[in-house]
């Protein structure tokens, strides 16, 4: 099982300090959510964890090795990424698109091996996209598209998966489906980190939450301990209603405080 350790991480985009003094450690076994208001640095944290951004100071360690110093293919085999609002620039078929996830495993100019094909099939089966195989990935509905993009990320068969706002533009049913898929992966041992805006979903599906505000890690722990009234008021400026419906814990934003 892979461990991501973040030590005193500072990240700047241009002149603006986006993350400051982030310290945490993440392992698989439970779904980890990253929450916080717009501009809190959630996506930046995700990108820094993937080695896409160079830290100003501090380190991101992947099983003890600094993520920026790993060979690109090694890093790619270990952490998969599901970016926010994934764009697709050419109308590939769904199968071809999912197959791109095997790229970190391929030697130059080699063909897909049986293991690669099996991984592609498994990823499509897990996301219920086998029927879409021959469809143009650019002509899918929002829900289909989100599942296909997740299949692409799962096909990497990485030990860690970072998903940046995978719920954006999904209807409630597809949102819950996406969260169930991610939580299932996480509980099976993959290190799954998901950036979320929806506090209800975060409270319901995540086992651990990281609350970011203005580039700082404000709270880190189980949803109960992170999503306190005081934290919601301070970070989001909102009040919330808490309750259960059919045994499911619910948190619903009520009003601006």
């Amino acid at each position: 099982m892979v461990t991501i350790r973040i030590e005193a991480l500072d990240v700047a985009l241009g002149d603006r300090r986006v993350l400051a003094g982030i310290d945490t450690e993440m392992t698989g076994g439970g779904l980890i959510g990253v929450i916080g208001p717009n501009g809190a640095g959630k996506s930046t944290l995700a990108r820094a964890m993937l080695g896409l951004l160079k830290p100003l100071s501090g380190r991101v360690l992947l099983d003890g090795a600094e993520v920026g110093t790993l060979r690109p293919a090694d890093r790619a085999r270990t952490i998969a990424y599901l970016p926010q609002g994934q764009t697709l620039h050419w109308p590939l078929s769904v199968e071809r698109l999912v197959a791109l996830g095997r790229m970190p495993h391929l030697a130059p100019f080699s063909r897909l091996s049986a293991a690669d094909t099996a991984a592609i099939e498994a990823a499509m089966a897990a996301t219920g996209t086998l029927d879409l195989r021959t469809r143009d990935a650019t002509e899918l509905s929002g829900g289909e598209r989100a599942r296909v993009m997740l299949a692409r990320a799962l096909a990497v068969e990485a030990q860690a998966l970072i998903a940046d706002e995978p719920l954006a533009s999904l209807d409630p049913s597809h949102q819950m489906e996406m969260m169930e898929l991610l939580a299932e992966r996480a509980r099976a041992g993959t290190l799954v980190v998901v950036v979320l805006h929806d506090l209800t979903m975060a409270a319901r599906f995540c086992d651990r939450l990281l609350l970011l505000s203005q580039g700082r890690l404000m709270a880190d722990g189980s949803p109960d301990t992170v999503l306190t009234d005081a934290a919601l008021a301070e970070v989001y400026g909102i009040t919330a209603w808490r309750g259960t419906a059919g045994g499911t814990p619910l948190l619903v934003p009520l009003g601006r405080s």
Partner: peptide
């Protein structure tokens, strides 16, 4: 050729697929 395929998903995704 393979790097171009990865770029179908944009630069960030291509990099996370191991493309330098």
């Amino acid at each position: 050729g393979r790097a171009l395929d990865a770029l179908t998903l944009g630069e960030d995704s291509a990099r996370t697929l191991g493309i330098d």
